[in-house]
């Protein structure tokens, strides 16, 4: 029903969206996972409480999470230009997506790690485990189901945000929806892009939950 050109554009849109989402999530975890671990460890009930470090990370991540994504996107334009050389297109969108996702992922990781049974940590401690042993061999292992579920949630959220970046020329399916659906009144293209986003979301969600179930050995 569409011309070949349109179909190609939509395929490129899918590719760009998947690229933005996966890259941002991976980079988001590279930053957010350590943040989450440090938050969980330095919390007052953590294995090495430290009020100052906890407070600093707590405040920074709260500030970043409280700025609406669209505003963050615009505020970060100079920084984005500095990092990738331009402020539009899918690679440029990855920068604000990572900045936005990292503290969010940090919180998800923190809450997953806090679910780990204190008794198991105490048992590891009684066997002579160091703090690093406890983080890598106990907390991250025992919390893995919750961590995978959290990653699935993060992936879905970042997919949504990547579409939002379309309003400022971010590339991907969101960009197509805004350009054709909003500026050119081509409702059919917009409907298709929305459907594609929904399908992508479902695929991510299904894969994430499958993995979570696979790594769950507690029942």
């Amino acid at each position: 029903m569409f011309e070949l050109q349109t179909i190609n554009m939509l395929l490129e849109g899918i590719r760009d969206t998947v690229y933005m989402t996966l890259t941002s999530t991976l980079a988001g975890y590279a930053l957010g996972l350590p943040i989450g671990v440090i938050l969980a460890v330095t919390d007052k009930d953590g294995i090495r409480p430290n009020r100052i470090i906890y407070r600093i990370l707590d405040v920074i991540s709260n500030i970043l999470r409280s700025i609406p994504f669209l505003i963050l996107l615009i505020v970060l334009i100079p920084f984005t230009r500095f990092v990738v050389g331009k402020s539009y297109g899918s690679s440029a969108t990855v920068v604000p997506l990572v900045i936005c996702a990292a503290p969010y992922i940090g919180r998800l990781v923190e809450s997953s790690l806090k679910e780990v049974d204190k008794g198991v940590i105490e048992a590891a401690r009684s066997m002579g485990a160091s703090d690093l042993d406890i983080i890598f061999r106990v907390m991250l292992v025992e919390a893995r189901t919750s961590l995978v579920t959290g990653a699935t949630i993060a992936l879905g959220t970042i997919l949504g945000y990547s579409a939002m970046a379309g309003t400022v020329g971010g590339g991907g399916l969101g960009d197509i929806a805004v350009r054709y659906g909003y500026y050119r009144y081509q409702t059919d293209i917009m409907v298709v892009t929305v459907l594609l986003i929904i399908i992508l979301f479902q695929i991510f969600q299904t894969i994430g939950m499958k993995i979570a179930k696979k790594v769950e050995k507690r029942k």
Partner: peptide
């Protein structure tokens, strides 16, 4: 930590690693 490894401990709620 070395001393602790020479003292075993068991608990009321077993405290096994549930994912292992």
């Amino acid at each position: 930590r070395k001393q602790r490894s020479e003292t075993g401990m068991i608990f009321q709620h077993f405290n096994l690693l549930m994912q292992k």
